[in-house]
Design a protein around this nucleic acid. Structure first.
Length: 296
DNA sequence: TCTATTTGACCTAT
DNA sequence: ATAGGTCAAATAGA
């Protein structure tokens, strides 16, 4: 019974997402005043993020399915996780999700195309991509991109298969600069409350479904946290968490963003609390979808 | 020359 | 047998 209701909710949410994506495509084509269009796009982006967040919660295998939108709930969830030492990682073989986008976009990862295939009953070919680091780091992440037949405006179905097990190539200030070049969506933001070089590079700005990586611009203490894999980073962050996440920290984080990135503020809040208590100065940290799941 | 993409051939599951 | 997924040689371009 409960599963039926959840299935219905998921279905409705998928439809809401699809319709909003189509609306986004239409708004992009509208030739009107910049401010109005910009505001509309911001609102649409927020709706899409809400859809993604809801979908993510409903698909979370029931682990944390109930909406927990206040910071106290987040704190409880993170403390529970830290106490239980439960790995949040799914089985990589079963990791799969789909998105419909108005246009192929930079999702923060580097992909290499390895095939293209005509699909029966579809006008457009399906393209196959694997992670650029599939060989170097044995990363099994793949994705398929296929333009939908629905006509103008163009919509693309993006299917992600397998979880990224690679770690980002940037670990020095120079690498961080390269990352900004590689990922035009990356933003260099100044963080409040730091005396020296309080900068972070942020990319893949569509949480909670998309991965988000934050690098603090300091190397002195970066070796104090495990840095060889994102999973061990996450574990150390979770186990090292003693204070949870406060809404005030989130707000102060949001205030420090240039330009404001409301959807990122909560993520930064996690790192401010955790990282600052773990080590006395900023360090290099990775955050991915699994950690984001217990934000709600 | 090196790296990424293209594309026909091949493999595998149904 | 067929469709979808992957391989790998050829090709493009920086």
């Amino acid at each position: 019974m409960e599963n039926k209701i959840i299935d219905s909710v998921i279905q409705e949410m998928e439809q809401a997402f699809d319709r909003t994506a189509k609306l986004q495509s239409l708004v992009e084509l509208v030739n009107c005043g910049g401010t109005v269009k910009e505001s509309a796009m911001v609102i649409i982006e927020e709706i899409l993020q809400s859809c993604n967040a809801t979908r993510s919660m409903l698909n979370s295998d029931g682990a944390i399915a109930a909406p927990q939108r206040n910071s106290a709930a987040i704190e409880l969830a993170s403390q529970d996780l830290a106490a239980l030492h439960v790995p949040m990682r799914r089985d990589p073989r079963s990791y799969e999700r789909e998105e419909i986008t108005a246009a192929p976009y930079n999702d923060g990862y580097q992909w290499r195309k390895y095939g293209e295939k005509g699909i029966k009953g579809c006008t457009f070919n399906r393209s196959y991509y694997r992670c650029t680091y599939s060989h170097d780091q044995r990363c099994n992440a793949k994705k398929q991109v296929q333009q939908q037949d629905s006509g103008a405006p163009s919509l693309f179905l993006v299917v992600y298969k397998g979880e990224h097990t690679c770690r980002p190539s940037w670990s020095t200030a120079e690498d961080a600069q390269l990352m900004v070049q590689d990922f035009p969506t990356a933003r260099r933001v100044q963080l409040q409350g730091f005396d020296e070089q309080p900068f972070a590079y942020i990319t893949a700005v569509t949480p909670p479904v998309e991965p988000c990586l934050i690098r603090f611009d300091s190397t002195e203490h970066s070796k104090r946290l495990p840095s060889h894999t994102s999973s061990s980073m996450r574990r150390s962050v979770v186990e090292g968490t003693t204070m949870g996440i406060s809404s005030s920290k989130m707000e102060s984080a949001a205030d420090s963003m240039e330009p404001p990135q409301p959807s990122l503020s909560a993520i930064c809040g996690i790192y401010f609390d955790t990282v600052l208590d773990e080590v006395s100065s900023p360090c290099s940290v990775g955050l991915d979808t699994d950690l984001l799941e217990f934000r709600f």
